[in-house]
């Protein structure tokens, strides 16, 4: 059987598959369905300094090969995550978890990351500067290289844990943002967050989502994610976490060939709660089919 393990920012993962933030809650509820210790790790629900209800209903719309969401970072706030969610997770997950953090100011990011830096369960901080569903903060930091770099510096100043910056695809030049993050000290880059989209309700003749726009995810965005991972891999030397529309073991390997060290699976979890378990189980046979002995040899393999 082939070797599945990879190393992400100095931390070994038994395999590169990571449920993406916002599709896996704080993990423990999925432990009712399967032993989540089979995962490389997972990225928990985007967490902010204060509790957030998120956006009004409806928050979900469907499209041909994916969905739009405008959840708007609903979460109980970092103190409740530390006091309630992480202890529940500790009972069912024995690996380091990736802590996904969002904010509306540099102070927010620094505060939340500093609080999570003190949690031994946290292996990485995934700093989300790319949420398209909140007003102020979120994506506005991720669309400007200088603003992105300022977030990275603010976070790096308060943590010794690896900082992975999650980038938005809603820019003309993702490479310049990735470079700015690396120059500011980011230990890794994850991409892509969702693509800004909209659906319109024919009956009401108004946008379907109460927020108007939402973030597109699912198989529709996979080629966009592969392209952006490929471009960023050429420009930076820190590890990349590939995200966007992954739904199979083949997709995982394709994302790695583009340049990803690890691969997040998002929307697929919402359609099938067993998606990540099944992708991990399928990897050895798919590796054998393509003559792959060690998965880490695939990282960036598509670059000439």
């Amino acid at each position: 059987m082939g070797e599945l393990s990879v190393t992400l920012c100095g931390v070994e993962l038994s395999n590169p598959v990571i449920p993406a933030s916002g599709t896996f809650g704080y993990g423990y509820e999925f432990a009712e369905y399967y032993d989540i210790n089979c995962l490389g790790t997972f990225s928990f629900k985007g967490t902010t300094r204060e509790p957030r209800f998120g956006n009004p209903q409806p928050r979900i719309a469907e499209c041909g090969a994916g969905l739009l969401n405008a959840v708007g970072l609903q979460n109980p706030g970092v103190e409740a995550v530390i006091a309630e969610e992480l202890p529940k997770l500790a009972k069912v997950f024995c690996k380091p978890v990736m802590a996904n953090v969002s904010g509306f100011s540099l102070e927010d990011y620094a505060y939340t990351c500093a609080r999570l830096d003190g949690q031994p369960q946290v292996g990485w901080l995934e700093v989300n500067i790319s949420c398209p569903n909140v007003h102020g903060g979120g994506m506005s930091f991720g669309t400007d290289p200088a603003a992105a770099a300022s977030v990275v510096r603010a976070v790096k100043a308060v943590t010794k844990k690896p900082v992975i910056v999650k980038l938005t695809p809603n820019v003309t030049d993702v490479v310049s943002v990735a470079r700015a993050c690396e120059d500011a000290g980011a230990d890794g880059i994850s991409l892509i967050n969702t693509l800004l989209g909209m659906r319109i309700d024919l009956k009401r003749k108004r946008p379907l989502l109460a927020n108007g726009t939402g973030g597109l995810s699912g198989p529709a965005v996979f080629p966009v994610a592969v392209r952006m991972v490929y471009q960023v891999y050429e420009a930076v030397s820190v590890p990349i976490v590939g995200v966007g529309g992954v739904r199979s073991a083949e997709d995982v390997i394709e994302m790695m060939l583009a340049g990803a060290t690890a691969v997040e699976v998002g929307a697929a979890n919402l359609v099938d709660p067993y998606a990540c378990r099944d992708i991990i189980a399928a990897l050895p046979a798919v590796m054998e089919r393509y003559g792959i002995e060690n998965l880490r040899d695939m990282i960036g393999g598509a670059h000439g």
């Binding site: 916002g22 599709t23 896996f24 809650g25 509820e29 999925f30 629900k45 209800f53 998120g54 209903q57 928050r59 979900i60 969401n69 959840v71 609903q74 979890n269 919402l270 709660p273």
Partner: peptide
């Protein structure tokens, strides 16, 4: 099943 917070 409680993962996405879409229906809160």
């Amino acid at each position: 099943f409680g993962a996405c917070m879409g229906c809160t």
